[in-house]
Computed example of a mutant assay.
Amino acid sequence: MIRLIGKAGRVAAIAGALMLASCSKAPDPAAAHRKEFSIGWSIYAGWMPWPYAQQAGIVKKWADKYGIKINVVQVNDYVESINQYTAGKFDGVTVTNMDALTIPAAGGKDTSAIIVGDYSNGNDGILLKGADRLAAIKGRQVYLVELSVSHYLLARGLEIAGLKPTDVRTVNTSDADIVGAFGSPGATAAVAWNPQLSVMKAQPGVKQLFSSAQIPGEILDLLAVDTATLRANPDLGKALTGIWYETVALMQRQDAEGKAARAAMAKLSGATPESFDGQLSTTHLYADPKAAVAATVDPALVKTMTQVRDFSFSKGLFKGASSADAVGIAFPGGKTLGDPQRVTLRFDDSFMKLAADGKL
């Protein structure tokens, strides 16, 4: 899964943003009623329905229904896709819950997560050489993409193992380099995501000793949309939600059409059908919109986002903030985490509810 934010990328993304963004519900003048929109995506098993839907005509079908045009645009670098969204080039982007919080939201861009698509259920893991217990990581250098969901996974693994962040030293490594870096004799610990994780795990003497399956629901993969654009153009949210659930329903099927859809997604991601199916097996897809709504209204989401924002604040990702409460996060039912006057990340279940009720 290509879901990374290096330190330099985060600094660049956040540096020009203002923490004191208004959270007024008045529509942004720049987000007037429009007919054409762009959504950025990057390669990850749980996000491959988007390019497939475009290829298969499902995007056009739903866009035509609402009289709009939707461009689904691949960005090879995940951090760049978020940067472009934050800068206004895209109206929406595929993004993790942590990255939605720490880049656009922390930078003052009011963002709504309208589709909770999946959670990593083993797609992210901690690897060690020559060890059978995670406790053996103490004192080692750990190769990972710093300040990313990999860094968060490491923090949670250390916590569960009774260790402290200071018990290890992290080595910032890009997704392009991490497989090669871990292959060197001196590298004995790493945190990675699929497909790199699978390649690294196959190296001799390597064992996976912690994974996202042990913290289910904490690493979420979302479709996030600019809130002002969404309010001025609610049909965009309806079309995107329709696209998502039609495509995911197709890829879940075990008949020839479902198999063909998954094979096409595998090809679009540069994987074999077998490898792609393996990545899907460690991705908990919310294929049923009712399940996605239930996950979004579950109090566990507030707990998860509390852990995520506290970790993010501790790493200095809320630039200039004096506390973790500086960035407000809104949940269905009126619950707010942090400053209610500075809400810039919203979990909006309204469009998923329309899908669940068959009202799209």
Rank of each mutant, 00 (worst) to 15 (best):
K89N: 04
D175Q: 15
N121Y: 14
A356Y: 07
K164A: 07
V72C: 06
L18M: 08
L360C: 05
Q196A: 15
G242L: 07
K7N: 04
D277R: 13
A189T: 08
S314H: 09
S120M: 11
D357E: 15
G117D: 04
A264Q: 10
D77N: 15
D357R: 15
M352V: 08
F37N: 02
K129D: 00
L285H: 07
A56P: 12
G328K: 13
R10D: 01
A261I: 08
I5G: 07
R262I: 03
M265E: 11
D310E: 13
L147N: 14
S312V: 06
L268M: 12
L354E: 12
V95D: 01
G258D: 04
I82Y: 00
M1D: 05
T86E: 00
D175V: 15
V327R: 01
A31E: 06
T229R: 15
K25R: 09
M98A: 12
R231E: 02
G6L: 14
G88S: 10
P104V: 06
L301H: 08
S22N: 10
V302E: 08
G186A: 12
Q307F: 10
A202G: 03
A15F: 00
L4N: 11
S322P: 01
M1K: 09
I14N: 00
D325P: 07
M251V: 07
A31N: 11
A8G: 06
L127F: 02
G205C: 00
G270P: 10
K61W: 03
I14E: 00
G139L: 09
K267V: 02
V93K: 01
R133H: 07
